[in-house]
Nucleic acid binder design. Structure first.
Lengths: 115, 115
DNA sequence: CAGCATCCCGTACGATACTG
DNA sequence: CAGTATCGTACGGGATGCTG
């Protein structure tokens, strides 16, 4: 039996870590192919991308669709469950931007994918 | 110059990890002494507690007040900046609870500090 | 193009014991 | 009671090369 301190633990288990939230964030704007995601996420490794996608899929947040063709084509999209995270992720993102703006100096940091 | 993919990275830097969000969550209900927090957070180590508190303080989310007396007394409380995280943390927490409820079996997990 | 297998490393996290 | 100091380990994350 898994034990959590509070709901936060669970959420962090799902979108915590270095890439999960980011990838999910991208997918929330529409289905993407593997290569597309690779290009979008700055500096992510093939390994981490695949691993991240697998974990998101295992948690039921995204869906993986394969096209049987050569060369292979795979497309990822958010599930209904994944959609429910949208408002949460957006407020998280917004808070981070505000926080940075109010505590860092402008020339000390940069946000690559600010909207 | 620090580089972030998006605001999410920043937020996770502040409340990510195993304990930060939880401790902050407790403090949002009112000032607490070190020992109190230790008792509240299940299984946290002295080391991790202090470390977590230091990081939260360094990020300007909590305030540390020492009383010069023997035995020593220290009290932690959230700053105004920390307060701004309250709605965000709450929605994160709520989402985690909902997620668990809809994807786990009731006898497979437990949340210690569900409100 | 999409994915897997190795090998590797830093650090986040933890257990334990000790000071003022 | 609050905090430090050491030491050890597990795991998240990365570099590189190979398959269908």
């Amino acid at each position: 039996m898994k034990t959590y301190n509070c709901g936060l633990d669970i959420t962090l288990e799902v979108v915590g870590g270095k890439w999960k939230a980011l990838i999910l964030y991208y997918l929330l704007t529409g289905p993407k192919r593997t290569g597309e995601l690779k290009r979008l996420a700055d500096n992510i490794t093939q390994k981490m991308l695949i691993q991240t996608l697998k974990e998101l899929e295992a948690n039921g947040l995204i869906h993986r669709k394969t096209y049987n063709q050569v060369p292979p084509k795979v497309e990822y999209s958010v599930t209904e469950l994944g959609e429910t995270l949208k408002p949460v992720l957006e407020s998280l993102c917004k808070w981070g931007e505000d926080y940075a703006e109010s505590t860092f100096n402008k020339n000390e940091y940069q946000i690559l994918n600010a909207n």
